[in-house]
Amino acid sequence: MHETIEVLIIEDDQRIADIHRRFIDKIGGFTVVGSANTGAEAKDWIEALQPDLVLLDVYLPDMLGTELISYIHEHSGDSDIIVITAAAEAEIVKKAFRGGVADYILKPLTLDRFRESLLSYRVKREAFAGEGKLPEGSIRLLWNKTDTASAEPAATPKGIDPITMEKITGFLDTAEEGMTAEKIGREIGVSRSTARRYLEYLVTEKKAGAELIYGMIGRPERRYFLKKP
């Protein structure tokens, strides 16, 4: 019988946090013990709950989620981390990798990818259950996926509406300094998360680029710009 793995969700978009919670309920063997929407709130939950697993977003209102990785290691040493984010910048991915996260999942998230990640994590976690020396197979498993199918290129996400995409690319085409997902969402009447899903799809298709812009105050903004032919 599997132990129940306690999960803390750190995600600024409450709707996405609720999706994580519903996905966890479908998988079984995991239970959500808390949910934080900001970095400051996450720190309180991490120290109070000492969760087994943290699902960590990168874009938080008051900091980048990667800044929390060392904090989690210091204040909840037995907690593991899976990053779930739209961030694909090399510097951010590198920080996560060097921070020893168990997995890095790009949004938009699917149940199959979520399930594969959590079940793979549970198998690896159980490798530590015994005492004494670990067999070579268990040690190799810790640094490899249990399912190599996840290494295949991701399929085009469903739900990409051509009309919405045309509106988004139209706004990007007029923005010389780029636009945030929040601003584009307001302009065309969709949520920030929906706009970000389309924008990240354009980035994966190499039709758009993205960069973090650091202002004088507040969190850095992720701005998207259309790549010119």
Rank of each mutant, 00 (worst) to 15 (best):
E3G: 14
E3Y: 13
I5Q: 10
V7A: 03
V7H: 04
Q14Y: 13
I16N: 02
I16W: 01
D18H: 10
R22Q: 15
R22H: 13
F23M: 06
K26A: 08
I27S: 06
T31G: 14
S35I: 15
D52G: 03
D52F: 02
L53F: 12
L55E: 04
L56D: 03
D57N: 08
Y59Q: 15
L60H: 02
L60M: 01
D62K: 10
D62F: 02
I69C: 05
Y71T: 02
I72Y: 04
D80W: 02
I82P: 11
A88V: 14
E89D: 09
V93A: 01
A96N: 05
P108G: 01
L111M: 10
R113P: 05
S117M: 07
Y121C: 05
Y121D: 15
V123F: 13
K124V: 11
P135H: 08
G137C: 13
G137P: 15
I139M: 11
T146W: 10
A151P: 14
A151I: 15
A151W: 14
A155R: 07
T156G: 14
T164H: 03
A175H: 03
E176G: 06
E177S: 15
G178I: 11
I184A: 00
R186A: 14
E187M: 10
E187R: 14
E187G: 00
V190H: 10
T194D: 05
R196I: 13
V203L: 03
K207E: 07
K207V: 12
K207H: 06
A208M: 04
L212E: 03
Y214E: 08
L226I: 13
